[in-house]
Design a protein around this nucleic acid. Sequence first.
RNA 1: GCCCGGGUGGCGGAACGGCAGACGCGGCGGACUUAAAAUCCGCUGCCCCUCACGGGGCGUGUGGGUUCGAAUCCCACCCCGGGCACCA
Length: 813
Amino acid sequence: MASYDIAAIEQKWQERWEKERTFYASEAADAPKFYNLQMYPYPSGELHVGHLRNYTYVDVLTRYKKMRGFNVMSPMGWDSFGLPAENAAIETGIHPLTFTEEHIVKMTEQVRRLGAVYDWDRELAAHRPDYYRWTQWLFLQLFANDLAYKKEAAVNWCPDDQTVLANEQVVEGSCERCGATVEKRNLSQWFFAITHYGQRLLDDLATLDDWPERVRVMQENWIGRSEGASFRLPIAGHDDKSIDVYTTRPDTMFGMTFVVLAPEHPLVAELVAGTEYEAPVAEFVEQVSHETEVERMAAEGDKKGMSIGVNAINPATGDEVPIFIADYVLLSYGTGAIMAVPGQDQRDWDFAKAHDLRIVRTVQPPDDWDGEAYVGEGPAINSGFLDGLEVDDAKAKTIEWLEEQGIGEAAIQFRLRDWLISRQRYWGAPIPVIHCPDCGIVPVPEDQLPVLLPEIDDYKPEGSSPLAAAEDFINTTCPSCGTAARRDPDTMDTFVDSSWYYLRYVDASNDEAPFARDKADYWMSVDQYVGGVEHAVLHLLYSRFITKVLYDLGYVGVEEPFRALFTQGMIVKDGAKMSKSKGNVVSPDGYYEQYGADAMRLYELFIGPPTDDAVWNDRGVEGTSRFLDRVWRLGDGEVGTVSDRDETPADVEMLRLAHRTVEKVTGDIERFAFNTAVAALMEFSNGLGAYLRSEAGGRRATFDTVYDMLLRMLAPLAPHLAHELWERIGNDSMLATEPWPEWDPELTKLERVTMVVQVDGKVRDRIDVDASITEADAVALALTSARVQEYTKGNEPAKVVARPPKIVNVVTA
RNA sequence: GCCCGGGUGGCGGAACGGCAGACGCGGCGGACUUAAAAUCCGCUGCCCCUCACGGGGCGUGUGGGUUCGAAUCCCACCCCGGGCACCA
């Protein structure tokens, strides 16, 4: 138990930081800017120790960078639109607005309690009209530039949440939020044309060298660029029609023994019309359309399909090949049709086997090949003018040939789909368009924003947006022609809100524009972004896209929003991520009461490597609390003795330890190795304790110097205690605004070191030597070691490897 | 299937190719105390020899390799986590 009043100290300093506006940012500051940002949280009203890890990292960085002389901007806001508030409203009858605002108050309190400091002048919340007004403005910008469009398409439908979802929100066929199996429905929905930016989103990943490799790879996979060729296949007996196919393996064209269309492909119905295939094909299509994504994936290997009784012509061989429909070909990718080459594609192989179709190999497999489809490298065979060419050359030559024939060309495909942003839910930003029977889709004029979300009584989604039933809202007049018209009843995906909030922070109270260009120029890009890896694709990809759009439109001067990204791991308890539903949530409140915010913070930092998931240990906070108590006692003169004696080597050693610790902690914080930074400080304080308790005790001047350094280093990590101690030992200044300590390279060098002596790689002796020992002296010393001679048995060593002053290895054989 | 990470004491984890296990948790022993808490000190990878002082062997998922020297680099494999996936 601490002998000091933790609660009083915490309150005192939290009030002072706020009152003195210590951590508020200004564009006018005469220092380099540092935009420090954490992913703004959903106001769930309940912060657990897993969340606090993230808050602690960001706060440490804010405080550290400030001490390093940066003009730090660290804002806070709320991702406050979205389903939980609405679902709670349905259950409890509490209005989402009340629910949300109450949670924001509660969470603000919890965040302050940790001692986390933000520039609250910039606070924003997605659900407030002064914010979503500009989310709507953003929509209009995209609409005006043909990047937002409404289209009927087969979309993901979550039956539980009663709304559509973006592709990114479907994980293995299930709703990312609620886990329900997602269905496909043909609906008219709003999309953002993120595919227009596919290539740039991919290319610019290379510029993000302060992003985790993992995240870049995930985005790369998601964008899914592939190179190949597209070409047209003639259809026997239908000279007016052809099938467009896309392939990444044009070199295998001679091996195309059949063609497969997606069942929903528009050509299918045309080709079978009036034939005996019409009815069975219709039945097959009907059947497939009822399958969910999950069922379709579960059928992998089991290639379901049927012939449609029409042949296509392989342009390379001139042969007629049968056309099939099969559910393994997706209408949504490429052209919805493939040339099937069973010899080089396992799926085609499986299908060919199931339907007894011809297989022709066009790449020579290795001699020991005993597999089925061969997808590797090798010379072309059975391929006419391609024979003998390796895969890459054969691809190029085929494309050349397709172009000469005028039937095809090189082509690039992306897996990335346009971003579906409309939602049939209440608690979101209304889509600012009006549907006019005469003029069609008309954007709400900018000066009429925001389109306010109306108060309604029934939030329950019934397959269409609850707003559709709000007569006063939905009925309006066309801004263009004045006739009676209807507002769009849908709201925007909350990922639209979060795709630009970091730009609003730079000028959060602007009511003329979302933000001023000069402020964006000053603050952007975000220098350090911190958040969970679960947003690797969703939020981070959308934000990159929106920033690029705004760059193209001249609103910002940077193409990438987040210069450096840090993704922290989760905190795990009982083998699972902390969540209410798992019932394993650890609240910080008990720890705050018993040990205080600083001990909590230090354990959050110490718990493990910040990028990794970490297991919560109930005793951990006790450990860091013990450390803080020791620091307190050291400062309070309760440990050992201190006197004004003359300097001894022990004092110099103490000073050296302090300097080495500054070097270590600085480096560790810079590279986000907070766990080892805390460990180094513990070692330092252990050393300081031993020094004071030694027979000679501590020397006043030395102690004052090193304790000053200790407090400065603790200032970002355990700020309340560090500030209080700083004041207690007689400083007038606010520690937060003091400079970070420097280290003297002369003092971080070791003078005496333990040199390890090995014989044949095994440690046989340790000798205390001067750090500047020469190689010759090191070798000589090693060879005279009695322990070494024991092992060399007087024989001349075969070889001696010396790396003074660290190690000498005597090799006997 | 392809692409990333990662396997180190009882636990969380340290470790520029150079003393494996820093720091902390837990455990054991001791000091202080009437007692307890708190605090402080010592020990704490496994096995073996020794009354002891000491000393030896084995140890970073498994098997090979490179090197004077490998947790670290290379190859193969096993296991765990993550991403993509009937994507043509």
